[in-house]
């Protein structure tokens, strides 16, 4: 328990710091970005998707810039990478190190051990998004801008649903496998492929990251409500992955 808590704390604090530094740096450069967005659009002309993003930021102002930088860029890169790295080792890491028998040999049920890791991991994957988002209003003060705290929390919840789904799918695989490196490699490659698809205009609607891009986040900000069309299926993926992991883990040989 102590070991797990220590690992979770280090991971959670580390992810929070990285996300905060990324959005802090982005906000610091916001005035310069806003001044040069027209030139950037010329520069991005060969890539229609990048051009679209710049258009959205130009129209949405600092809110679009923040959601693009923090949730689309930070969440979909650092957040997704962190979720995969963390989930891949959660169970498979025990098998890989040879410590699974020691871990399971105590009088604690498998369901409880797995649930602790699953929900603990889910928490430290999602909590840094909320914590770093909570700092944004203060950071925006550096450049005399502002953004609604409620909008940020809504976007954080949406971003967390995607990160949670990726965490959960990776965790399910970890519960069944013994080689965390293979899981990490395949999941990261999958996400890179999905990101590449997103950047191709004709394929973008088939990309996983279409559910968490600037357009979707800006709708959350402008409409002032949660969009369950995206979050509902992501929550279902989380629930199914958890139940699947429980089932696989129950019969797993250490």
């Amino acid at each position: 328990m102590l070991r797990t808590l220590r690992g979770y704390t280090i991971y959670g604090v580390g992810l929070t710091i990285v996300l905060a530094l990324m959005i802090g740096g982005a906000i610091y450069w916001w005035p310069s970005f806003a001044e040069n967005v027209t030139k950037l659009k010329v520069f991005a002309a060969p890539m229609p998707m990048l051009g679209d993003m710049l258009n959205q930021i130009e129209q949405g102002g600092v809110s679009a810039y923040v959601v693009g930088q923090h949730y689309f860029k930070g969440g979909n890169t650092v957040g997704v990478g962190g979720a995969i790295l963390f989930a891949a080792g959660a169970i498979a890491g025990e098998a890989h190190r040879g410590t699974m028998e020691l871990w399971l040999g105590r009088p604690v049920s498998r369901a409880r051990l797995l649930s602790e890791r699953f929900f603990g991991g889910l928490l430290v994957t999602c909590l840094p998004v909320f914590v770093s988002s909570a700092l944004i209003p203060w950071m925006l003060g550096w450049v005399d801008e502002s953004m609604s705290f409620a909008d940020l929390m809504r976007c954080s919840a949406h971003c967390s649903a995607l990160l949670g789904a990726i965490f959960a799918v990776t965790f399910f695989w970890s519960a069944a496998a013994s080689d965390p490196m293979r899981i990490i490699f395949v999941m990261l490659m999958f996400c890179v492929f999905q990101f590449a698809m997103y950047m191709v205009k004709t394929a973008t609607d088939y990309s996983l990251f279409r559910v968490a891009d600037i357009e979707v986040y800006m709708e959350l900000v402008l409409r002032d409500r949660f969009d369950w069309r995206y979050v509902g299926p992501l929550l279902a993926v989380i629930a199914l992955s958890y139940l699947g992991a429980l089932r696989v883990f129950a019969r797993r040989v250490p």
């Binding site: 328990m1 102590l2 070991r3 190190r97 410590t99 028998e101 020691l102 105590r106 009088p107 604690v108």
Partner: peptide
């Protein structure tokens, strides 16, 4: 267990506490 793989980052005392959870 016969196979001896411990958590190398834990101290001996922490390891005993880990092994004796729920005792």
């Amino acid at each position: 267990p016969g196979e001896l793989h411990l958590y190398s980052e834990l101290t001996g005392r922490e390891h005993l506490a880990f092994l004796l959870r729920a005792r």
